[in-house]
Write a protein that binds this DNA or RNA. Structure first.
Lengths: 196, 196
DNA sequence: TAGCAAACGGGACCGTTGTTCCGTTAGTCT
DNA sequence: AGACTAACGGAACAACGGTCCCGTTTGCTA
């Protein structure tokens, strides 16, 4: 009988290759990744990698698929500013972390050239935003923000300046930048900019 | 006697190669660029490209160097909101343009892996920001914004959300997003978030 | 306008990536 | 437990990117 074989060796090979793709991305960036090198790093036959993935883009997309699964629980203090700061600090420390930061920026570049990677990355960010939306939604129902405020938009407004500086200027986000991002998102939200 | 030869054939070759690098970036993204292909596109000997640039990174960096030179003059209506909207519209239309948008995002990815490209890209964005700073500075001196407001920070605040959505979600910025970006930057600036 | 050197280009060469073939290993099912 | 088959891996091969050599072009300078 014919069946899928998700367990055992296959899974081990998959994990080793996905990890190796991540390492290669962190070290050389997307342009420096080739599957022969990935196979060597993973301690896996070159043939296997080419058979199962075939292209760098497909392997990278699978890496992002994995990242979507790993969830980081949010803080919920009940105070909007504290919650947004906790979110901003999570983003800041992720971007400032040598491995995570390089990985994310490499993936952002990869997504522009491969639709499957782009779709996976969208799911990744959507999941993060959805995790933090309730903080804002509760603040709206408490009356701290105008009724009709779009919670997702507020959460994204916190991340945007941190990503922007990193991607256009290569600057790792500082604590000051984090606090300014929170203050700006809060001021805009209170002014009703994110009311749908 | 030994001399530099900036004119004539050398300049033509340089221009053709730089253009070809841009085309290749737009089509395949950074990972898909190789100098043999660039030489073919440019109608230039492969040897020439390898001798003068040697690596993809060096050729890309030279492309960005060129982009720094080309300046786009700003509008200055004397009204802060109009000026910021004009700036936002410039950013929006640039990012939404198939060639320019792809090129910029590819360069953002390239900058992470090559310091010379990163430096050139920093100069590029610094020049754009500096071009628009006066609009904000005048608004500050007119008293529309709190004294001590950092003009550059306000200008960057307008761009950030547009770039963020494009890079993380692949969404081309809409007119609505443009206006929201302006409104958010304005609200934050008025609240004194960007006071140094 | 004549000569000279810098820069270009063709072509051969080499190493590495990507492909194919086939034998081996190891989960799965009876 | 034994057999069946999907998946892995080594090895040979092909294709292409990157390097080198040397003759040719081109545009500066006198």
């Amino acid at each position: 009988m014919t069946m899928a074989r998700p367990g055992g060796r296959t899974a081990r090979v998959r994990a080793a290759v996905v990890r190796a793709v991540g390492d290669a991305l962190v070290e050389h960036g997307l342009a420096g990744v080739d599957l022969a090198d990935v196979a060597r790093r993973a301690g896996v036959g070159k043939t296997t990698v080419y058979r199962r993935w075939g292209t760098v883009a497909a392997a990278v997309a699978e890496l992002v698929d994995d990242m979507v699964e790993t969830s980081v629980p949010r803080a919920a203090t009940g105070d909007l500013e504290s919650d947004l700061r906790a979110n901003a600090e999570l983003v800041r420390s992720t971007l400032a972390d040598p491995r995570q930061g390089r990985l994310l920026t490499a993936l952002i570049g990869a997504a522009r050239a491969d639709e499957r990677t782009a779709a996976a990355l969208r799911r990744f960010y959507d999941a993060r935003v959805r995790e933090w939306e309730p903080c804002v939604a509760e603040a709206v129902s408490r009356g701290e923000l105008p009724a009709g405020t779009d919670p997702a938009e507020v959460v994204r407004a916190v991340s945007a300046p941190l990503y922007y500086r990193l991607l256009t200027h290569g600057e790792l986000p500082t604590e000051a930048a984090r606090d300014r991002a929170v203050a700006a998102a809060l001021a805009a939200a209170r002014a009703g900019v994110y009311v749908v």
